[in-house]
């Protein structure tokens, strides 16, 4: 059902945890759908210097969170925001069609964290002007 890569990231996820003095926190999803994803980011200049996550959800939700944080960590905000859920799917060597929403959730959790950072610091991030996390990600 899942690729080897998904199982690796599910069994041994990277960047699990919280950042106590996070610059931004994003949370998406709800327990009703079975997935909640929370991401914490640390910003250094324009670089996402650290990122951690906590996820309640199925294997693909946990694997999507894990690989997304790997892809984002160390990138500039602009480069990180340019990543899409398809990049998450590709990096996991694919997800079953019914699980693609998990990768969308990872993209949105990160965007929500950056938006939280931008709002707190009165920074205008053009890429996020129209961003509204989609609750009904299924």
């Amino acid at each position: 059902m899942y690729s080897k890569k998904v199982m690796e990231h599910f069994m041994e996820p990277h960047n699990v945890g919280e950042i106590e003095d996070a610059d931004g926190i994003g949370e998406v999803g709800n327990a009703k759908c079975g997935d909640i994803m929370k991401m914490y980011i640390k910003i250094d200049g324009d670089i996402v210097s650290d990122i951690k996550f906590k996820t309640f959800g199925c294997a693909s939700a946990i694997a999507s969170s894990s690989i997304a944080t790997d892809l984002i960590k160390g990138k500039t905000i602009t480069d990180a925001l340019a990543l899409t859920n398809q990049d998450v799917v590709d990096s996991l060597d694919g997800l079953p069609p019914v699980k693609v929403h998990c990768s969308v959730l990872a993209e949105q959790a990160f965007k929500s964290a950056v938006k939280d950072y931008a709002d707190k610091n009165n920074i205008d991030i053009p890429e996020l002007r129209d961003f509204v996390p989609d609750e009904d990600h299924h």
């Binding site: 899942y2 599910f10 069994m11 079975g34 997935d35 959800g57 199925c58 294997a59 939700a61 946990i62």
Partner: peptide, 10 residues
Amino acid sequence: RIEGEALILS
């Protein structure tokens, strides 16, 4: 606080 599919796969 645990999702079923994650539990089954574990």
